[in-house]
Design a protein around this nucleic acid. Structure first.
Lengths: 244, 244
DNA sequence: AACTCTATGTCGGTA
DNA sequence: TACCGACGTAGAGTT
């Protein structure tokens, strides 16, 4: 939705942030900020953005960073005074205030935007694929034997063979791993161990609970942070290159 | 300037960033990013901002941070393909690419914004403390006489004694100084001058109105930019003094 | 809530 | 260009 710049309407539209709307205003404004630091910016053409979560951004014509801002959770008020639009954003802990005064309005947008803030970087399946496609991440020179290999205790996520012939049994989690994950890994390792093979246990997860860490250490298993993989993913991702 | 969403026009308007325009597009888009990391965001309502310096921002309805972005200096291309708007931003060192594909356009803004990126840090009290703790910033070898010194005209923010025995009267503002600030300084200077002492006037402020600048010059006072001044914490010194 | 660590950090400085 | 430090860092995860 786009509308003509009108002080009263602008104020009303800004307050619509409470109903889930994003409001954008382009106009000439001054900005006063006090809080962790303090600043004043004289009247000039700028763009103000108000988001439903209380975020306030003021952008100029350069830089990635806003000239001034207020983080999510701030409380915003907007009203007309002498036919000027005043926008005030307050935040507590730490106490911070921004006062924006528009003496001229140019453009006004009111819209609803997505709120995914979703970053697709790696499901458990992605991690498994990544290990399969490049087992050297786990151990240099290792070869893939297979994934989702059934055993009496359940399916082993990945099994590799190390250069020295020993097996590497890998349990993959895409959430913080607890002792159950380590116990599961332990069962797999013991299963293969009982067949008279030398076996290493590796747990891949974003993080590890304290108990899991202790158990892992006691069993002599290895932990690899899933974060390391998303880094490696950069190198192996070549899916979307387009012409310029 | 606001216009109806039209694929060809949108592409053309985005490219206006090379002529100093900021372009904002609200619509439904997908985003592919590959560079230092990698991500894909499925089609959803978002806001894209392109700045004259090559900055590209994609915002959703929450968070201060953009969902995806490209820093200043990136090269942006925009065109229509199958009636869909494609925006591509490339950057070298490090190599990074963003591909945004709009399958629906909602709003389009083209505007010119200020490029001050002025940041004034420090409260007035901070500035005073800074001067007190290191008066040499104002003049090499100067000594502190006191702060908030009462006079018949009001309290003088800081008074120093220069090496040659003359007084240095300092007026500190943490906002753009107008003639009133200079006039106040003038009164203080005249007050001490009437006591038969040699007096210098110094104004510390983030900026100065044109009239204030002229008056300051006429009176032979010094102006120190508060912005430059805050840098003095680690750098030195007299170079920051500007005389008009 | 406080603390720690990461980030496509960004940005400004200097060598 | 690369390295170094500061930032109103923001934001996520852990204690």
């Amino acid at each position: 939705m786009v509308s003509k710049p009108n002080c009263a309407r602008a104020a009303k539209n800004i307050l619509m942030y409470r109903q889930g709307y994003v409001c954008v205003i382009v106009g000439i404004c001054s900005i006063e900020y006090k809080g962790r630091a303090a600043s004043y910016a004289d009247f000039a053409a700028r763009m103000l953005i108000v988001k439903p979560d209380g975020t306030l951004l003021i952008h100029e014509s350069s830089k990635r960073e806003p000239l001034n801002w207020q983080p999510p959770g701030s409380r915003i008020d907007a009203f007309c005074e002498n036919n000027k639009l005043i926008v005030i954003s307050k935040r507590y802990s730490p106490p911070e205030t921004i006062v924006v005064e528009f003496n001229s309005l140019d453009t006004l947008i009111l819209c609803k935007l997505a709120s995914t803030y979703l970053r697709v970087l790696g499901t458990e399946e992605d991690l498994v694929k990544l290990i399969i496609s490049n087992p050297s991440i786990i151990e240099s020179g290792a070869e893939v034997i297979g994934k989702d290999i059934p055993t009496p205790m359940g399916k082993v996520d990945v099994v590799l063979r190390a250069k020295d012939g020993s097996l590497i049994v890998i349990e993959v989690k895409n959430e913080r791993a607890g002792i159950s994950a380590v116990a599961q890994l332990k069962r797999y390792v013991e299963h293969y161990g009982s067949m008279g093979v030398k076996v290493q246990g590796v747990l891949v997860a974003p993080s590890l609970s304290e108990e899991a860490k202790r158990l892992l250490h006691r069993e002599g298993f290895k932990f690899i942070s899933a974060r390391e993989f998303s880094k490696a993913k950069r190198a192996s991702l070549d899916m979307f290159i387009k012409k310029f």
